Amino acid sequence: MQSLMTTIKKLKEGAKKPYSVPLECVITSRSDVIRYKTGGISKTMLFVSLCDATGYIKGSVYDIHKFDDIEDGEGVYMKNYIMKSESCLVITSKTHVMERGKMSVPEELVRESVLLTRPATPPPIDVSLVKKSPVKSTVTVTGKISQDEAVRTVDVGGEDVDVRNVTLSDKNCSVRMALWKEQTRSDVHPGDYITATNCIVKDYQGELQLTCTPRTTIKKQEPPEEKHEMTIVAFIPGGIHMQVAIEGSDTFYNIDKDILATFLAVTQNELKSALKEAVPLKVTATVLNKTIIAVEEA
């Protein structure tokens, strides 16, 4: 006699085909709504994580309103779905999705199933490590915006989509990153240090690049300390601080007078005269956000 109910484990072990046998499971998580076009027609879909006592599986939902009134953590009763692969169950407009109420599912399986639609955010890495990452891998990157291109519109599957390319840099290298749709309005500019989460590594004409995803968040970060060899060529005396001009740079840096006086082995009263004698003064400077916080012999 055929069972009146199936399980996720049985479905994953069975044939890849449509099923009418009922499945009772818990929806543990869902992705953001994904918008796309087919033949010029705008459509939507999302992914759900489904779990029962025997395992878990990702569901592709092409009629997203079937889950409007069902909250994550609630049980569902489903019929007329399709097993597309061992790891994916398809829910169409013909699938019956009904509320079932609470179900008892092992916590460990629940935690693991959530990652199907809400993967853990990778820890931040430098730009140089992005260049060593596998194509199609997901990374979180931290770097300084060195270039920012104007927003432009491109055709993606018959839909006009805004895209903005920025270049992220660190001491060793740079990588181009594409921001899409609402992300193009992110309030970040050249000189800002940012962390961008959940970016995909892509190969474009032999060059590794990054593209943001719907899960990407972009946040400004405090700039790191950096060491540079520089030559001080002019200065403006101030109170506690002074401003110095650097050879070959349009940037003026602030520096505490005590730092320079200690470096030149003079008192603050002697500093102005000592600097006049010392410039051009070549130093190795530790810089934090246009402020020199330490100097040493170059």
Results as ranks from 00 to 15, higher is better:
6 T>G: 09
7 T>C: 00
13 E>M: 14
14 G>M: 04
17 K>W: 02
17 K>T: 13
18 P>H: 08
20 S>D: 05
28 T>H: 08
28 T>R: 07
29 S>A: 11
40 G>C: 08
42 S>E: 12
48 V>G: 01
52 D>M: 05
56 Y>I: 00
61 V>G: 02
68 D>K: 08
69 D>M: 15
69 D>W: 14
74 E>Y: 15
75 G>S: 03
81 Y>H: 04
81 Y>A: 01
87 S>N: 14
90 V>S: 10
94 K>I: 10
96 H>V: 15
105 V>H: 01
107 E>H: 15
109 L>T: 14
110 V>H: 08
114 V>P: 01
114 V>F: 10
115 L>E: 15
117 T>L: 04
119 P>N: 08
120 A>W: 11
121 T>W: 02
123 P>C: 11
123 P>V: 14
128 S>C: 14
132 K>G: 00
133 S>D: 06
143 G>M: 01
144 K>I: 09
144 K>N: 00
149 E>Y: 13
156 V>M: 08
160 D>T: 11
164 R>M: 04
170 D>H: 04
176 R>D: 11
176 R>C: 13
182 E>H: 13
183 Q>P: 06
184 T>P: 07
185 R>P: 00
187 D>N: 14
189 H>M: 14
196 A>K: 03
197 T>V: 10
203 D>Q: 07
207 E>Y: 03
214 P>H: 08
225 E>V: 13
226 E>K: 02
228 H>A: 08
229 E>F: 13
232 I>H: 09
233 V>L: 07
236 I>D: 00
250 D>Y: 11
252 F>R: 09
257 K>M: 08
257 K>V: 10
260 L>A: 05
262 T>M: 06
263 F>V: 07
263 F>C: 04
266 V>L: 02
271 L>Y: 01
278 A>S: 07
279 V>I: 14
282 K>W: 02
283 V>G: 01
286 T>M: 03
292 I>R: 01
294 A>R: 04
296 E>P: 09
298 A>R: 07
